[in-house]
Amino acid sequence: MPQMSPLWWLTLMLMFNLMLMISSSMLYFNQENKKIKKKKYNMNKISWLW
């Protein structure tokens, strides 16, 4: 398929890179959230003074 226009290959490459970045960021943040949840905040309940 080398006869295809360069624009087509450029768009393909850009889409691939974009999806790769999005998927990697989602995985990273998912792992970070899991780490944060494991720690479990030991915060005292705040009694609101209205």
Rank of each mutant, 00 (worst) to 15 (best):
N30M: 13
I46M: 05
M4V: 15
M26F: 01
N33T: 06
L18F: 10
M26S: 11
L12G: 03
E32D: 03
L18I: 10
M4I: 15
L27P: 03
E32I: 13
I36C: 02
K39P: 05
K34I: 15
W9T: 15
M26L: 06
M21G: 04
M43S: 03
F29M: 05
I46K: 11
L10R: 01
L10C: 09
M15L: 08
N17L: 15
M43R: 08
K38V: 11
W48R: 15
L10F: 07
Y28N: 05
K35W: 00
N17S: 09
I46H: 12
W9G: 12
W48N: 15
L20H: 02
F29A: 01
L12I: 14
K37I: 02
K38H: 07
L49T: 13
I22K: 00
F29I: 13
S23M: 06
S24D: 00
N42A: 12
S5P: 11
P2D: 12
S23R: 00
K39V: 14
K39R: 08
L20W: 04
M4C: 15
I36R: 14
K40I: 15
K38P: 06
S25E: 09
M13S: 11
M21R: 10
P2W: 10
K34W: 03
M43N: 02
L12T: 11
